[in-house]
Design a protein around this nucleic acid. Sequence first.
DNA 1: TTCGTTGCCGAAACCGGTTTCGGAACAAAA
DNA 2: TTTTGTTCCGAAACCGGTTTCGGCAACGAA
Lengths: 384, 384
Amino acid sequence: MTANLSHRPRDTADRPSVSGRVKLDELAAHLGLSKSTVSRALNGYSDISAVTRARVETAARKLGYRPLSHAQAIRTGQVRAIAMVLNSDEPDRHNPFLQDFLAGACEAASHLDWTMTISTATSERDTLKVLSRLFEERKADGFILPRTAVKDARIGLLRSLGVPHILYGRTGYGQPNTWEETSWFDIAGETAMRKAVLRLAGFGHTRIGYVGSDLKFNYSHLRRDGYAEGLHEAGLPLDPDLIRDGARTRDEGAAQAMALMQVEQPTTAIVFATDLAALGFYPVAQDLGLEIGRDVSIIGYDGIPESRYARPALTSFAVDSHMAGQRLATMLIRQIRGDDPAGLRELTEATLVEGGSDGPPTRTPQELARIIQTDNNHNRGDRS
Amino acid sequence: MTANLSHRPRDTADRPSVSGRVKLDELAAHLGLSKSTVSRALNGYSDISAVTRARVETAARKLGYRPLSHAQAIRTGQVRAIAMVLNSDEPDRHNPFLQDFLAGACEAASHLDWTMTISTATSERDTLKVLSRLFEERKADGFILPRTAVKDARIGLLRSLGVPHILYGRTGYGQPNTWEETSWFDIAGETAMRKAVLRLAGFGHTRIGYVGSDLKFNYSHLRRDGYAEGLHEAGLPLDPDLIRDGARTRDEGAAQAMALMQVEQPTTAIVFATDLAALGFYPVAQDLGLEIGRDVSIIGYDGIPESRYARPALTSFAVDSHMAGQRLATMLIRQIRGDDPAGLRELTEATLVEGGSDGPPTRTPQELARIIQTDNNHNRGDRS
DNA sequence: TTCGTTGCCGAAACCGGTTTCGGAACAAAA
DNA sequence: TTTTGTTCCGAAACCGGTTTCGGCAACGAA
C-alpha cells in the first residue's frame, strides 16, 4: 500500500492535490496569479480588475474550486452556519411540522451558502449548555430559538454572550419592552383566536369556551388575549369559568374540554389554542354523545395534517412552518452580517382552513347538558 | 465600568483576551508552558508527564478553554460533524419521528463531542448536489443516508468520493453483494410483516391481503417478502391479487385497501407496510359499513403516534426512531474515526404494539362482500 | 567518566484560507 | 521633467490550533 507513495514522482504545483480537491494555491498557480489576488477576486474586493476577476471566476468554476469553510472561518471568524437547539423534553414534541420548518430554514440558508446545524437538549438547563458549547466551539454563528417562553433564559444567555439570535415567537408577555432589542418572527395567534371567536359568534354562538396551552409559553397568553378580545368585539361577556389553560397534549385537551362540557351550562362552541388539544376532543365528544360540527362547534390552531383527516375535518388556523423557517433563517443571517436586530421583526398571520367542525348552534346549553348527562351514563367505563 | 480597563497595567499574556474567549496561547502562558505542550496534553499524547497533563486539564477546565472546532479542523481535516440531507419532496414527508430520530442522533453525536448538521433537498438530483457541496466545503465529515432506495445514487456518489456514510435501511434488493462494503443500520420490516401474517393466521384468517409501499424504496421489497414468507409459514397460498403496492400516503393506502375489499372475495384481514396507509383505511371501512377489528382486521407498521389515537387503536409494529438515530450516529462516527465500514452493520426488530384493530374473523369473505355491496350504495357520494 | 537511553518539553512548520501593506506601472497634473 | 494620484497586484503576516522534530536533563549501564 505505502509502496505507491515512495514510487510517486515529486509533485509540482500545477498538478491537482492528492485528495482530488483543488486548493487556492493550485488555482492561483493555474492562473499565474498570487493566491491573495485570487482570494480577493473571489471575495469581491474592488482592487481587482474586471478582466482578472472574470478570469478567476471562470477558472474557479471550471476547476470546481470550493473553499473549505473552516479554513475561511479561521480568519473571518464566521463558519456560515446557524443552529437551532430543540428541547426533546416537551410532551408535545411530535411536531409534524419540523421537517417543513427545517426545509424552509435550510432552503433559505443554502441559498445564501450557509448551513444549518441542529442539536437537541433534554431540559431547559441542558439547552443553555448546548447553546454555549455550540457557540464556544463556533459550530454556529447564531441561533434560532424556537418555542419562546414568557421568561426565556436562552435570550438572557445569548444576549450576555453577544451571540446573534432570533426568536420564533415573541417573549416577555406582560413585561413591556423586555424584548426591546431582540429580533423575532411570529405568527399572530391572537388575531386567529379573535377571528375564531368572531366566526363562532357570527354563527350565533353565545357561550364560547376556550382551551389554552401551557402558560409558560408566550403564545399561550397572546392567544388567550385574542380570545378575550374576540368576545369583547362580539359583545359577549368574558366568563372566567369558560377558560381552561394548560392543555399541552391531546389528552390534556380532552380533559380540559370535558371540564367545559360536564357542567350545568356547557359551552356550545370551543376555541382551542392548539389543534392537538382540539383533536383530543373528538373521542370525548363521541363518548358524550355529541356530534362535532352540529351539537358543538370547535376551532383549532396550527393546521397540523392530522386535523385534515379527522371526521369532521377540524376547522383550524393553519401556520406556514416552511415560510417561518425561511424567514427566520434569512433574518438571522442578515443580523449576523451586521443588520440591526431591532429592525428585524416580522409578524404574519395564520390562514383559516375551514373544516366541518363548526357551524351554527343546534342546541341550547341546557339541551347539551341533558344529552351529556344521559349519554355519559351509558358509555361510562366503556373505554380503557 | 470601562475605567477599570484604562487603569489596568499593560497586559501581560495572563489577561483573558478581549473577546472573552480563552485561547490556547493564553492558556499556555497562564501555565508557563508552550502551546504545543498544552495542545498535546489536551489531546492525550504520551510524551507529556502525568503531572503536567493534570495541571493543564484543571487549568483548561477552570478557565473554560474550548478549542475552536474550525481551528482544529484546518490541521486535522475533521470538523467533527455528521450530516443528513432530507428530501422534502416526498409525499409522506410529514414524519412525526423526525424529532425523535434527530434527538437520538444528536444525543449520540454530542456525547462524542460531535455535532449534526442537516440540510434539505427538493429532488434526488438536488440531494446529490447538496451532499457534494456539504462535503466539499467540509461542513461534515460523513453522512447518514435516510430512506434508502433499491438503486440509490447517493451511495455511488459518496463511495466514489471516498466520503464516509451509513445507510438507514439496506439497499440493492435483488442484486446480491451490492452493498458489500457499505455500513448500514436497519430494522427488519420483513420480520414484522411475517409476524403480522402469522398473527392474523393464528386468529384464523385465511384471506390476508397486503398493501405495500413505494417500490423504489428498498424496504418495500423486503416487507413484501416478509408477507409472502409469513403466508408460506402459515401454509396459506400466495395470491397475487391480494397484493397491492405503491401506497405512499393515507389516500393511496385507502385506495389500495378499497381495491382489496371491493371484489367478489374481499380479504378478511390486511397487512399494511406503513401505518399511514393503514390509517387511510379507517374512513374507507366506515364508508363500507365495516367495523375495523371485528369485520376486518388490519395491522400496520411504524408505530406513528396517530395510530394510537385511531379508534380502534391500530395494531402496529413500532419502530424506535430514537435508537435508530443514536446507533446510526455512533456507527458513522466510528467509521470516520477509522473503523472498517463493512463491520458496521446492525439489524434490529420492530416491536409489536397491540391495538384493537385485529382479532379473529367474524365474517366470511362472502358476507363481507354482501355488506360492502349494500352499504356502499347507501353511502356513495356521501363524502366530499 | 562516558555513552547511550529515555522522558519531557519548546521551537517552528504547517493547515488553507483572508487581509494588510507596500510597491510597480501608468496616467494626469504641476 | 517632476510630482501626485490611481489602478492593480504580490509578499507576507495572520487566524488558532496541531504535529513534527530536535534538544536538554536525568538516569542507568559500561
